[in-house]
Amino acid sequence: MSVDQATVRRVAHLARIAVTDDEVAHLQGELNAILAFVDELAQVNVDGVEPMTSVTPMQLPLRADVVNDGDCAAKVLANAPLAEDGFYAVPKVVE
């Protein structure tokens, strides 16, 4: 499978990465090189094979449903590009 430039733009938007017109042409070539490489997998017979969901057989551990960490809002917000009144600040989302 290979991608056209419209697909490159669609995927870039899905990935929330802005791309310029120049970059689209480059990316198309690079993505197609990678896709050509992984297309080799089409040769493998995977009939009746379960897809791997966990590489080591293990049971998901459970713990008591209690608060065991937190109460450190200032620490959490210290790396935020913009914070106000103990919250992350972002451009208006809901009109």
Binding site: M1, V3, T7, V11, L14, A15, L31, L35, V38, L41, A42, V44, V46, V49, E50, P51, M52, T53, V55
Partner: peptide, 21 residues
């Protein structure tokens, strides 16, 4: 993003996970 997107998930991602098995 592409291999997980609608229409390609089975052909790429699920197949790769089977190959991983």
């Amino acid at each position: 993003t592409y291999v997980l997107s609608a229409g390609y998930y089975d052909a790429y991602y699920v197949r790769a996970q089977k190959v991983r098995t």
